[in-house]
Design a protein around this nucleic acid. Structure first.
Length: 429
RNA sequence: GUGGUCGUAGCUCAAUGGUAGAGCCCCAGAUUGUGGUUCUGGUUGUUGCGGGUUCGAGUCCCGUCGAUCACCCCA
């Protein structure tokens, strides 16, 4: 029988992978909380209609969708924004506005996997609902910048490419393009940097607009354009405007964006967008059948591309490596030099664990050097040796290799004191 | 869903169609009460899977699964 493998596009998370994931989650949570956001979660499975409502029938081919045992059409969530809109519309009266909500969890898309794109990925979503001001847009951009900075990324590593659909709306109204045709036009703009010029020209033809006109218009959209004035003043005051690059080609694929749109882009590795989002003022209304009309804006950041970026960004390495080590390190390795003292050692293990220390030991009789190697491998700060000196035990500081004997009654106190001191020695690399 | 490339030990990779290997990792010993270095020895494979051609297939052919790249998509 062939060995089992993960289902296509899905990942195993071994301990070192979980350590990285925890590091990412912790960072997302810490910064979001710093901004006054509160955490929520939505179901992993929703009615397929929820996504049809938002994006139309063609979306189904990208959905991880199936029928349940009662023949209901359901889908693994491809994103959480529709769920958020549903939840917010249902209970919005219970919360003071604006809502500042964030969420961390898996999403699923039935696509061809490749680097940076899997069928299950984890997103951090941050959204602000119930306030339509540019101040909200600025707050979200600021949050996305600070999340990246918290990971250790700098201005050398990433940039916020930002635009607003207002810009193109004005342009299109001027050219008498009907609102229902505008999404199709924006799709062309979205691909303008990747597509060949003659292809773009052909696709623009039905709109009666030349590539030259589009390019000329894009050149007028720089950071001094009046449409960005308020956002610029806001982010400049925070010292964050230097992270922004106005880029009229950023329109985001989604039809529902209505105002500011932005993406977090890495500058050095030619990766996919690390995060993206914008303002979607109509969505709550659409999702609630018009019952609740609430302006909203938000962004999402995926773990897969972020993980690749972090692994390639020197500035992020220190925090990351430190976090990974901290998640698997123990405080104390109890070494049993004399098997007749094993029960005494176990008693001490429990006492130390009750005191909150991370303690491990060998399950079976083992040579001293093996036990010390285990202590080393687990990055224990101290070793406690139970041997023929009992009822005294030897405490060894594994950082500086100094060893002292103490009475068993003083073990906990002595260890706590040792663990408070800085680890000076080769262990601290 | 479409097309290209790839798939050999836990990992990184070798092997003109002719006995499947190396380094790292791991395990044991040198060292029976002391961890990073060193030395010695050792384990590890249905060569992704299934067919076919051949005296003989890791190697060539077909299919399939997976990875990766491009397309698509990125809600």
């Amino acid at each position: 029988m062939a060995a089992f493998k993960t289902v296509k596009g899905f990942r195993d998370f071994f301990p070192e992978d979980i350590a990285l994931r925890n590091f990412i989650f912790d960072t997302w949570r810490r910064v979001a909380r710093r901004y006054g956001f509160v955490e929520y979660e939505a179901p992993f499975v929703e009615s397929t209609d929820l996504y049809r409502r938002k994006s139309g029938e063609e979306i189904v081919k990208q959905l991880f969708c199936f029928k349940d045992k009662a023949d209901r059409e359901i889908s693994l969530r491809p994103e959480v924004t529709p769920s958020l809109a549903r939840m917010a519309a249902a209970r919005q009266r219970d919360y003071r506005k604006p809502l500042k909500w964030f969420q961390i969890g898996s999403c699923f898309r039935y696509e061809e996997p490749q680097e940076g794109r899997t069928r299950e990925f984890i997103q951090f979503n941050a959204d602000i609902l119930g306030d339509g001001s540019v101040a909200v847009d600025a707050e979200l951009v600021a949050l996305s910048i600070d999340v990246m900075r918290e990971f250790g990324a700098t201005q050398e590593d990433f940039v916020i490419r930002l635009s607003t659909r207002e810009l193109w709306k004005g342009f299109l109204d001027q050219h008498n393009i009907a609102p229902e045709q505008q999404p199709a036009f924006l799709q062309i703009i979205d691909k303008i940097e990747r597509a060949r010029p003659d292809e773009t020209e052909t696709r623009l033809a039905p709109f009666g607009i030349s590539l030259g006109e589009v390019r000329a218009f894009m050149d007028t959209a720089d950071s001094d354009h009046p449409v960005f004035a308020e956002l610029k003043a806001n982010l400049t005051a925070r010292g964050l405007w230097d992270f922004i690059r106005i880029d009229a080609t950023i329109v985001r694929g989604l039809a529902y964006y209505t105002g500011t749109v932005f993406e977090v882009f890495d500058l050095k590795h030619d990766l996919r967008a690390v995060a993206g989002g914008g303002r979607y003022d109509q969505l709550c209304s659409v999702m609630s059948g018009g019952a609740v009309d609430m302006p909203a804006a938000g962004f999402a950041m995926g773990d897969v591309v972020l993980g690749i970026l972090l692994s390639k960004t020197p500035g992020a390495q220190f925090k990351l490596i430190d976090s990974l080590a901290e998640q698997t390190r123990i405080d104390v390795s109890v070494i049993i030099a004399d098997e007749t003292k094993r029960l005494d050692a176990l008693a001490a293990v429990q006492t130390l664990r009750a005191a909150g220390l991370r303690v491990d030991y060998s399950f079976n009789a083992a040579k001293m050097n093996k036990q010390f190697q285990s202590a080393e491998a687990q990055k224990a700060r101290a070793a406690v040796i139970f041997g023929n000196e009992y009822p005294q035990v030897a405490i060894k500081d594994l950082a500086n290799r100094q060893q002292t004997n103490v009475d068993i009654a003083e073990l906990e106190t002595s260890l706590l004191a040792l663990l408070k001191t800085a680890a000076l020695g080769p262990l601290v690399a």
